[in-house]
Design a protein around this nucleic acid. Structure first.
Ligand SMILES: [Mn+2]
Ligand SMILES: [Mn+2]
Ligand SMILES: [Zn+2]
Ligand SMILES: [Zn+2]
Lengths: 138, 138
DNA sequence: AGCTCACATGAGACTCAATATCAATAAAGA
DNA sequence: TCTTTATTGATATTGAGTCTCATGTGAGCT
């Protein structure tokens, strides 16, 4: 199934409409790759002559995030970034270089396991987590 | 050495002045305990009849954080919270209950070690990290 | 104790990402 | 095609945090 059909199915299934604007935002973020904020997505679409409003980009991003199609990333600089969750895209966390702003992805099974264990130990169920390593080149 | 003398020493050492406002913000956050935002600190001081401006609370919090006297905590709800670093206060991360908003602290040595290891593995030096578990009661 | 002045404060203007408003538009089902 | 109702675009508004600048004050010096 192609990604647009997938988008359509998920939206329809949640009672949302399958609109050109939502397709554009979704496709743009996928094509850009990496981690981008709403303003970047909006500028990119505007640059291509596409007619989408800033408000709709923000709203669409919210809808996509709520439905697990994209992931939100806040590194503490005041803007929320997003990344498309491609089909084969497994969970990962981020390492942010405090000198270049580069974002490197990492995954560690033991780390994931320990978090579950800790939540459990306190009588809680782990729903989601934020894990960011702020680093600099050695 | 009492905490106000410690505050004085650190401020003076960094070229900052030891002012009543800075003492009040520092003492208030310590007395409140837990994790609070600037508005809460401001309201608390105002409620006691203390004369401090909102701008000064924000500026003081920034100074205290920069000098390692307090720690910043951002849980993603748009407001930065702070907690006093008491003398015996070792590093810890936070578990946030998504139902009650409760903040539970945790520390796991193995977790800390793994983070260093991961940064290292990618040729980076770990400067700081953000680690939050969003949980709910089982 | 008094003098000096660079730093700190208070009040309010300002920034900027994000959200809300609302009239106009257009999915989607009948 | 018609009708209903979510969505969109343009813009106003929100709110945490920052900036400005006139006034105040900590602290070094005499
Ligand atoms: Mn993880
Ligand atoms: Mn930690
Ligand atoms: Zn990523
Ligand atoms: Zn804490």
């Amino acid at each position: 199934m192609d990604t647009n059909t997938k988008l359509k199915q998920i939206l329809r299934n949640e009672g949302f409409r399958y609109t050109p604007q939502r397709q554009m935002v979704w496709n743009e973020l996928r094509n850009m790759g990496g981690h981008h904020d709403c303003e970047e997505i909006y500028d990119e679409l505007k640059g291509k002559g596409t007619r989408v409003s800033r408000a709709t980009v923000y709203r669409t991003i919210e809808v996509l995030a709520r439905n697990g199609l994209i992931r939100k990333l806040e590194v503490g600089d005041g803007v929320a970034r997003y990344e498309a969750k491609e089909d084969g895209n497994h969970h990962h966390d981020h390492m942010i270089c405090i000198e270049t702003g580069d974002i490197i992805e990492f995954y560690n099974e033991e780390l994931e396991r320990l978090q579950e264990e800790i939540a459990e130990k306190h009588g809680y169920e782990l729903v989601r987590h934020v894990h960011q390593l702020f680093v600099k080149k050695k």
